[in-house]
Design a protein around this nucleic acid. Structure first.
Length: 499
RNA sequence: GUCCGGUUCGUCUAGGGGUUAGGACACCGCCCUUUCACGGCGGCAACACGGGUUCAAAUCCCGUACCGGAUACCA
């Protein structure tokens, strides 16, 4: 039977880094096995689901290039089928009506309330003590017909255990004793998560459920539903969780945008690099290679390579340099400086366009210059943003001067205020009749340096500041050449940086 | 509380009876260089703890600690 997996996010926010990795693993497994990667939006929680969130998640997946097969399934569209299934189980005596009035959840802190309640039970709670569990069919029917509201709960047997062989965690067993008679259908008629998931997974013919480890207990409940339905459950593979630096939960509320996929897109990350980084969080091919193309990931991915322990997404709040995981930043830089230039150009173009630095000539008349420039400046860049920020001076006359660069390379050497314009004159004279290339530039600048009885670095770094606005970059000889004679002369004469 | 899971450098990880416990990122130092966040070389740094089993344990077993997850008419 061919593999069918699904990524099933609930649209209650943007695409979280953990969800993105789950999607990636599902995608890789599907492609590796030649199966299908399906998408299902779990929007059964009407109160929290939003269309905007769905769009944001879809955007995130599109950015990561995790294209799904077949039509997107919206879980809410299947509510009738879910209800039908619940009624079927009720009719078969595998579920029962619970007429207990619905308890309103404490809005403020649902999680804590639940935890406190569970703790208060001291683990002594009998999961089978629901008074309506053994209500006679006649009475149950009568009360329902009389219009009394009820929820439908699964009737979990007194003795026995659920068991499944997790592809990552191995054999998982749980006594029925520890599982409550879970609610399948709310008293307002809305199907609940566990029921909906099972129905849809069956409907979609899912063969492998790959999802976060936080679903481990849900899986036992779902196995129960499969058993009640008489259907063989799919294979489960639970993924270790991605934690915050303090090993606590990585949450949208506490950690903000670092966990959102769109943040990385907007910060100038390459999808390929981030995908690569994500793939290595909780999975490895048991080898030392770390840079993988998508094709390699697809080829090497296996459920066996998934780890059992949680991974930390490492970043330091309030440290701009380490706002996100170091390795993710390094990997992005690695991609930027090593990928084929032609590929990189496709990503640089929209970046420059967005910054209003793009000129169509870069694709025809100036293509050679453009490619050479990108190739030169990418060596020290970390993100696509750097092309429009640090690299701005290569594409525009309207660029800023980094105060630190001025301080370091200009202010300390007041002579440069007259020397640099002088160098401009020298360039103008010297290059009137010879090629403005690195070799000749070096000769001229060195001669100039000797005349002024100063160090080469003083002239070079002063020029760098004037020509590029920043203190870092490629070899100055290359910079002179790539900026071109006219712009070099103009910028060396300019006094704006000095004011 | 109860159930479940986990624990190798700061982080991501390799190794699953005999290894100088390997790599990557980060950090530090040196080199290259006109500066530099490129590059090169090097350094720091880990088997949670306690018992077993064994000639031999990071590796197998048990316990403890710690961390995490779940515990809802949320998903």
């Amino acid at each position: 039977m061919s593999v069918r997996v699904r990524f099933a996010p609930s649209p209650t926010g943007y695409l979280h880094i953990g969800s993105a990795r789950t999607a990636l693993f599902n995608y890789l497994y599907a492609r590796h096995t030649g199966g299908k990667f399906l998408l299902r939006i779990e929007d059964t929680d009407l109160a929290r689901s939003t269309e905007e969130s769905t769009r944001s998640i879809l955007d995130g997946l599109a950015w990561l290039e995790l294209n799904h097969d077949e039509e997107i399934v919206f879980q809410s569209d299947n509510a009738d089928k879910h209800r039908e299934t619940a009624r079927k189980l009720l009719a078969e005596g595998k579920a029962y009506r619970d007429f207990t009035p619905k308890a309103e959840p404490n809005e403020a802190n649902v999680k804590d309330t639940i935890k406190d309640r569970a703790r208060a039970n001291q683990g002594e709670k009998n999961m089978r003590d629901n008074p309506f569990r053994d209500l006679s069919v006649e009475e149950s029917d009568a009360r329902a017909e009389a219009g009394e509201p009820f929820a439908i709960r699964l009737k979990v047997a007194e003795h026995g255990r659920t068991a499944f062989d997790d592809a990552v965690y191995g054999i998982q067993e749980r006594n029925y004793h520890d599982t409550e008679d879970l609610v399948l259908l709310r008293s307002d008629g809305h199907p609940l998560y566990n029921l909906a998931v099972v129905c849809d997974d069956i409907e979609m013919a899912i063969t492998h459920v790959i999802r976060g480890q936080d679903h481990l207990t849900n899986t036992h409940k779902q196995v129960l539903i499969y058993e009640a339905l008489g259907i063989t459950p799919p294979t489960f593979a639970h993924l270790p969780l991605i934690m915050a630096p303090n090993k606590g939960k990585l949450s949208k509320r506490k950690h903000g945008e670092v966990v959102s996929m769109t943040t990385y897109r907007d910060a100038g990350f390459l999808a390929a690099a981030f995908r690569n980084f994500l793939a290595l969080l909780g999975w490895s091919a048991s080898e030392e290679q770390e840079i993988y193309s998508l094709e390699e990931l697809v080829q090497k991915f296996s459920l066996e390579g998934i780890h059992r322990s949680n991974a930390v997404f490492n970043f330091t709040e309030n440290d701009p340099r380490k706002w996100t995981d170091d390795k993710a930043q390094w990997m992005n830089a690695e991609y930027i400086r090593t990928m084929p230039v032609e590929d990189l150009l496709r990503f640089v173009k929209p970046e420059l366009k967005a910054a209003k630095l793009w000129r169509d000539e870069y694709e025809d008349d100036d293509r050679e210059w453009f490619e050479k420039t990108i190739n030169l400046i990418r060596q020290r860049f970390f993100t696509l943003k750097d092309f429009s920020k640090q690299g701005r001076a290569y594409f525009s006359e309207d660029y800023d001067f980094d105060p630190a660069a001025i301080e370091k390379n200009l202010s300390k050497f007041p002579d440069l205020k007259t020397w640099l314009p002088e160098l401009a004159d020298r360039f103008e004279a010297e290059f009137a009749d010879k090629p403005y290339d690195e070799e000749n530039i070096e000769i001229v600048v060195k001669a100039f340096t000797e005349e002024k009885d100063t160090k080469l670095g003083v002239i070079m770094n002063g020029a760098r500041t004037l020509l590029t606005g920043v203190a870092v970059g490629p070899s100055m000889l290359s910079v002179f050449e790539i900026i071109g004679l006219d712009r070099t002369i103009m910028r060396l004469r300019s006094q704006v940086a000095w004011t």
